[in-house]
């Protein structure tokens, strides 16, 4: 007899069940039982936010080259488990061809973003020619702790678009996976756990967006909230809740089909640094 997997969440590098003890049932298109999925709670989100905050500083402090290799490593490990990801999708009604296509696109996306880690700073920085005798430069820095509501229709590409740009840029994330494609998300978490991604940098919750989005929006230690495919009334209410901590709110109606620098940059803050330049000779010096 086959051993079935318990689908758990991914918090701080570990795989706990939801503290709430709640679940929802995943069925295939015929209505047959496929798996029980954790229905994450407010407390689960708070735990994940604590783990993410703790992990963010050292993640951002790693060299860009190192982050780049770690994200590339995710693609390597994921590639090895292709059959598992394809099977989970076909269980939910995907044809093999469609599942393969989704998987290949996901791998391509990881490789694309891996290459951005040591480049986005270069293409978005500036040395500013100020009129006074100062060296003045502007660079992007991670906004910090990002929470994300992934798109409901995105098993792999949608989930990766939800969190990879954030970690490319040195943020730590808590992402709520698609309700329907929670199995793929948990399997991806298992890939992350074995890909040298430090625990807490990516935390993956499963559950209901309608329940967790307002909690993410009102959490005072979250710097940014990114949403994919939420409906208008919910966006309005979370936009209001975001005011309390002046949270950055990024709204995406659809899953971006291609990787993009914009998704990295929307979770960056521009920092400008000034330093005087000694001016004792008549020739002067400036940048």
């Amino acid at each position: 007899m086959e051993v079935m997997k318990t689908y758990k969440m991914f918090i701080g590098g570990a795989f706990p069940r939801t503290e709430s003890g709640r679940y929802y049932e995943l069925t295939n298109p015929k209505g047959e039982f496929v798996a029980n999925i954790c229905r994450g709670s407010r407390k689960d989100f708070r735990n994940a936010a604590v783990a993410a905050r703790a992990a963010q500083k050292s993640w951002a402090g790693k060299s860009a080259y190192n982050r780049s290799q770690i994200i590339y490593r995710i693609a390597e490990i994921m590639q090895q488990r292709k059959s598992q990801f394809v099977e989970e999708l076909t269980k939910l009604g995907y044809t093999a061809a469609k599942a393969n296509k989704e998987f290949d696109a996901a791998i391509d996306l990881l490789v694309y973003y891996a290459g951005w880690c040591d480049k986005y700073v270069q293409v978005s920085s500036a040395v500013n020619p100020v009129a006074s005798s100062h060296f003045n430069f502007s660079i992007p820095e991670p906004t910090g702790l990002v929470s994300v509501i992934a798109h409901q229709d995105g098993p792999l590409v949608g989930l990766l678009q939800a969190f990879v740009p954030a970690i490319v840029g040195g943020n730590a994330v808590v992402v709520l996976a698609s309700e329907k494609y929670a199995m793929s998300a948990v399997s991806l978490a298992e890939v992350l756990a074995t890909s040298d991604v430090p625990g807490g940098v990516v935390n993956i919750l499963t559950g209901f967006a309608s329940e967790l989005a307002p909690i993410m929006a009102s959490h005072m230690d979250v710097n940014a909230l990114v949403t994919f495919g939420l409906d208008r009334p919910l966006i309005t209410s979370i936009a209001e809740a975001c005011a309390d901590s002046v949270k950055r709110l990024r709204i995406h109606p659809d899953i971006p089909t291609k990787g993009s620098l914009d998704l990295i940059m929307e979770l960056q803050e521009i920092k400008t640094t000034w330093h005087p330049i000694e001016k004792i000779s008549s020739s002067g010096s400036a940048y």
Binding site: S132, E269, K271, W274
Partner: peptide
């Protein structure tokens, strides 16, 4: 968003200004 090292309260149109 703006850090002044060994100087303070300097502004310039070429220099981005704004907060975290």
């Amino acid at each position: 968003g703006v850090v002044w090292a060994n100087t303070y309260n300097k502004f310039d149109p070429t220099s981005p200004f704004g907060g975290y």
